[in-house]
Design a protein around this nucleic acid. Structure first.
Lengths: 217, 217
DNA sequence: TGCGCTTCAGTGACGAAGTCACCAAACATC
DNA sequence: GATGTTTGGTGACTTCGTCACTGAAGCGCA
């Protein structure tokens, strides 16, 4: 079984293309917290993530940060390549959040695949679309949504199935592109209502129902 | 002379590709204020703008709006196609701001061109990159920049070489994704400082220098 | 010319969010 | 245990967004 099977969009590649792709790309592993791309550091490869997640975020000159989106296992890092491929000086950076395994496809191979395979083209354009809608959603959120709603949403997302979220107030602030104090105060309000309990670096969700209700209002 | 010469990125297309593109696409004209794409209205063609501008904006459920970016003459509407091509239900819409002439490339032709021509591929991916960096910049602005700075910036941009800007406070609010009252107050402050003069529907820039200084601080 | 209608802009009060400066626990380490 | 670093808490203040109005400017039309 090849890594290709981890990517639904690539499963229908014809055999020739498929073996070409497998032959010409290689698997790389990067440790946690590696900066994969960023100002002045453009990747020469298209990355397909096998394991781990990559966080893409932006830093303002005033030092505040915001998480734009994440690339998860089974997804590709198209924007990365495209952005840096053509346009230049902005400060977004991609960071491996955990140890990350990925398939690296050299630019030339990428180009040939786009040229030769309609399936690969579809894979690429679909990935683009997804990222762009992600960005649209980020814009809608920061421009129009109230912070308590966004925070509730983020807590549930980060918790996943777990009961607790391991994150400092500062990290949550970066997730939402706001200031640490704002998060602190909002979490206190949640705590006052008995929805969460806090301890240094972790948040325990006690009453999930009202949080979820708030999140989708 | 063909319309192709209006697109620098396409000038290097080989003759065969070039004539194929010209032959298979057609020129369309839409009147001002036409909704070119939007919720439930996805375009079957890739558009290359010959004349006019298309404004892409998003509306929140609470009724507030924000302008995401504009497509100008000589640019292509790639995101449009890609987004709606694959991903579904979000509320961005594209509106012709003026009467607009554009070249419409059917999806099949688009696909064949991407397959056959490295120049066309480069054109497409470059256009993508530009849009995405635009979106990154929008996010950075709304998340981190103060409103007076953004407004000063927008006024100068809208003025162009002219002395006056023809826009209502409401329009400016949509440009910046904020509320009308906020714009009104900020413009009053500019007026108080003697930088602008206002009359119904127009703003006259009197002191450009301090506005520009504020805009890039 | 005067009457209504619509669109645009101004205002005050208030709540929500961001900023600044500073303090106090909790943890890490030596 | 002394010390330094992270993390979180707090108050004062500014900016921004919201709501509910008011009033003025332009337009159509009898």
């Amino acid at each position: 079984m090849s890594w290709i099977d981890q990517f639904p969009g690539l499963s229908r590649l014809p055999d020739g293309i498929r073996s070409y792709l497998v032959g010409e790309s290689k698997i790389v592993t990067v440790p946690a917290n590696t900066v994969i791309f960023g100002p002045g550091k453009s990747p020469e490869n298209l990355l397909l993530l096998l394991d781990g997640t990559v966080r893409v975020q932006q830093t303002s000159d005033t030092g505040r940060e915001i998480v734009l989106y994440r690339v998860h296992a089974g997804e590709s890092c198209v924007l990365t390549t495209a952005c840096l491929l053509a346009y230049e000086d902005y400060s977004a950076e991609g960071i491996a959040e955990t140890e990350t395994r990925a398939v690296a496809i050299p630019r030339k191979v990428f180009d040939k695949l786009v040229s030769d395979s309609i399936e690969f083209r579809q894979f690429v354009f679909t990935a683009y679309s997804k990222r762009i809608t992600d960005l649209f959603m980020v814009i809608e959120e920061i421009a129009f949504q109230k912070l308590d709603i966004r925070l509730a949403h983020k807590l549930i997302e980060l918790a996943g199935g777990e009961e607790t979220v391991a994150a400092t107030h500062q990290k949550l602030a970066v997730e939402l592109g706001t200031a640490r104090e704002v998060i602190s105060r909002q979490l206190q309000e949640f705590q006052r209502r008995g929805w969460i309990e806090q301890s240094r670096g972790t948040i325990r969700l006690i009453e999930r129902a009202p949080l979820e209700k708030l999140a989708q209002s």
